[in-house]
């Protein structure tokens, strides 16, 4: 778990290379076999011109970044809100970065509000969003 999650601090980024193999594995794991993700011939005939990664695959990277920074407090108490801005394709490298924007008390619990972005290798935003997570109680 990241030691320093104070206001204004960056969250350790996640970098992932997207391949068709990983998209296919994600389809098997999620059960989402939409041909735009897994059928290269079909996808080539659409306006997108080829397969794209599931938006939820990209969101998984953001969730993993938060889990690495905040541990189980994220997995059993986190909140996430994300907008999908543009598709990610096989061959793209996705980099997720995040920052703690504020730390506030909510119903007696200290929570960190973070913003995050997932960008491709051309620095184009793929997913942007916000996340809120309770902070571990500090020892007296």
């Amino acid at each position: 778990m990241a030691a320093d999650t104070g206001e204004g601090k960056s969250v350790a980024p996640i970098v992932r290379h997207i391949t068709q193999e990983k998209i296919n594995l994600y389809a098997e794991a999620s059960g989402d076999f939409n041909p735009i993700h897994v059928d290269e011939t079909f996808a080539a005939g659409t306006p997108l011109g080829g397969t794209i990664a599931h938006g939820m695959l990209l969101l998984a990277y953001a969730s993993e970044m938060m889990a690495q920074a905040f541990g189980r407090k994220w997995d059993s108490g986190g909140k996430l809100s994300a907008r999908f801005k543009r598709p990610a394709r096989p061959g793209d490298t996705a980099t997720v970065t995040g920052k703690v924007d504020s730390i506030k008390e909510e119903n007696g619990t200290w929570c960190a509000s973070c913003s995050f972005e997932c960008r491709n290798q051309n620095d184009e935003a793929i997913v942007v969003g916000e996340a809120v997570v309770a902070l571990p109680e500090s020892e007296e």
């Binding site: 992932r16 594995l25 999620s30 998984a60 969730s63 889990a67």
Partner: peptide, 23 residues
């Protein structure tokens, strides 16, 4: 296991919340 391979993650004894969500 397939999910963790797809997202390049190690995981532990619980299901990643986004894996639950994806299903």
């Amino acid at each position: 296991s397939r999910y963790l391979k797809a997202v390049d993650s190690r995981g532990d004894d619980h299901v990643p919340p986004l894996a639950v969500a994806a299903r």
